[in-house]
Amino acid sequence: MTLIGAILKKAQSKESVSRRYSSPPPEIKEDVIIKKKKKLLVHKFAHVKPAVDSSPPRYTPALMLRSLPVYHRQLLHTYQENIRLLMAIKRMHFLRGKVDCWRKEPPHTATEQYYKNRMHFLKQVQNENENMYWRIVNSKARVASTASLRKHWRRNRCQILHRAQAPFVLFPPVPQQIVEDAAFAPPAGVKRPRVFLSLRIRNGAVLGDLTAELFTDVCPRTCELFLALLNGDGLGHGYVGTCFFRKVPNLYWSGGDVIHNSGYGCYAQRGRLMPIGAENYHFPHSMPGLLSMRVSSDDEVCGIFNITFKPLPQFDLRNVVFGRIIRPCKTYEAIRELGSPLSTRPIVEMTAARHRVDGRWVYGQPNTKI
Rank of each mutant, 00 (worst) to 15 (best):
T331S: 01
K90I: 13
S254D: 07
Q159I: 10
A353F: 03
L312S: 04
P313K: 06
E81W: 05
L317I: 09
G339M: 05
P284V: 05
D257L: 01
A334S: 10
E180A: 12
R221A: 08
P346L: 01
P106S: 15
A352Q: 05
S139R: 11
G303Y: 02
K104A: 13
G234I: 02
Y252C: 07
R73Y: 06
M287H: 07
A205T: 08
S67N: 12
K191F: 11
I178Q: 09
V125C: 13
I4F: 10
L75T: 08
I83L: 10
R200Y: 09
F45K: 01
T242I: 02
K10A: 09
M92L: 13
R163N: 15
D181T: 05
P313V: 06
I7C: 08
L342N: 12
S145E: 03
L65P: 01
F45Q: 00
N127W: 12
M287D: 04
S54L: 12
N127E: 15
H108R: 15
G234E: 01
K90E: 15
L161C: 08
W134P: 04
I370W: 03
V248I: 01
L75A: 10
E128Q: 05
A110I: 14
S292C: 04
I326A: 03
F322N: 01
I83N: 14
N138C: 08
F171K: 11
A212I: 12
G208H: 03
V52P: 01
A46N: 07
N127D: 15
K104T: 15
N129Q: 14
L63Y: 10
A62D: 09
E30Q: 12
Y239D: 00
M132N: 11
A6K: 15
H108E: 13
F94A: 14
L235R: 14
T2R: 14
L199R: 00
T331E: 04
V248D: 10
N203E: 05
Y133D: 11
M92E: 15
P57T: 01
F168H: 13
H47Q: 01
L227V: 06
I304S: 02
P220K: 05
I136A: 12
S16D: 08
P61R: 05
V357C: 07
A110K: 13
V357H: 04
F315S: 05
W361D: 02
V301Y: 00
K140R: 14
Y281K: 03
D217R: 10
V99Y: 04
F226P: 00
G271I: 06
R356C: 13
G323R: 02
Q113T: 12
M287L: 06
G5E: 12
N117G: 14
V301L: 03
P69R: 08
L312Q: 05
E15C: 11
H282Q: 04
V42A: 12
T211W: 02
N367M: 03
C101I: 15
K98G: 13
M350N: 05
L149N: 08
I89M: 14
H93F: 11
V190K: 02
L342T: 14
Q269W: 03
R91S: 14
F215Q: 03
W153Y: 15
Q177W: 09
G5N: 11
S23R: 10
G364V: 01
F215L: 06
H108T: 15
S292K: 01
N129W: 09
S254N: 11
L230M: 05
L41W: 03
K37Y: 05
V206A: 06
H120N: 14
W361K: 00
P284K: 08
F226H: 02
A11W: 08
I325H: 02
L3R: 10
N117R: 15
I347D: 04
M1T: 10
I160V: 13
